[in-house]
């Protein structure tokens, strides 16, 4: 078996990044983002990146890092409300932005990874999202055509991996990562823990290793929390 394990994020990115490339980056908000690979991508100095990600990080963390360095020239996302620098660059027309409804974005990536070039959905009919898209009626209802998405490199974050690249995610940190893993020409996964072959239950693997070409183990995850909401334990 070819070795999928790389010593660190920088070596895992070597040879697959280039100016003008399209990346996918997993995560919902800052939950389940490939924080080590994003930091390493910054250090490569790769420019003119089209980034496909549900969100754009926050100022100084997640994809916000690559927006701060102006390495991203276009974003495809569903919600960018947490990033002030993003809003500033967009309103100043320094950044191209394509909003996709979140379910449409997820399905475009799923379709891209599955070799499906397009599909029809009701989502967005009668809105700005539908402009310029093919409309078609099925059973008396109108749908619009959306196209599949693929990327030159998909960056994903999982909880555990085995050396074959089988991945397991944890709780809501799964989100967009499994679909993105299928839609990268090269998929690089970063994980918190590498386990021995055979120690993951094959019935419980979320992403089969066929989708993962490169693998790194990250150290000291920051896992920043955006909204720390708690309840108070009543004293007994």
């Amino acid at each position: 078996m070819p070795n999928k394990l790389y010593p660190d994020a920088a070596t895992a990115l070597a040879g697959v990044v280039f100016d003008g490339m399209t990346i996918m980056s997993g995560g919902f908000g800052l939950c389940g983002i490939p924080e080590k690979l994003i930091a390493a991508l910054k250090d490569t100095g790769t420019k003119d990146i089209t980034a496909i990600s549900n969100n754009a990080g926050v100022d100084g963390f997640g994809l916000g890092i690559l927006l701060g360095t102006r390495q991203i020239s276009k974003m495809i996302a569903s919600y960018v409300g947490e990033n002030k620098e993003f809003e500033r660059q967009y309103l100043a027309r320094e950044l191209e932005l394509e909003f996709n409804p979140q379910g449409t974005l997820a399905e475009r990536i799923r379709a891209g990874g599955a070799g499906i070039p397009g599909f029809y959905t009701k989502t967005g009919v009668g809105t700005l999202v539908a402009e310029g898209k093919e409309h078609k009626d099925f059973g008396g209802e109108t749908y619009i055509m959306e196209t599949g998405l693929v990327a030159d490199v998909a960056l994903v974050k999982a909880w555990k991996a085995d050396p074959y690249g089988n991945l397991v995610y944890r709780k809501t940190a799964r989100n967009f990562n499994p679909m993105m893993a299928t839609a990268g020409k090269v998929t690089i996964a970063e994980v918190e823990e590498l386990v021995e072959a055979g120690s993951l239950d094959p019935d419980h693997i979320h992403t089969p290793g066929i989708y993962v070409q490169r693998l790194i183990v990250g150290q000291d995850y920051e896992k920043r929390i955006e909204q720390r909401t708690v309840r108070v334990r009543e004293s007994v």
Binding site: F28, G29, L30, C31, G32, E82, W159, R170, K171, T172, A173, K223, R224, I225, E226, Q227, R228, T229, V230, R231, V232, R233
Partner: peptide, 17 residues
């Protein structure tokens, strides 16, 4: 969550723990 149950991998769509 209670303060000691907070898990960064467990949020809702509003990014709340």
């Amino acid at each position: 969550p209670y303060e000691d149950e907070i898990d960064a991998d467990l949020i809702n769509a509003g990014k709340q723990t």
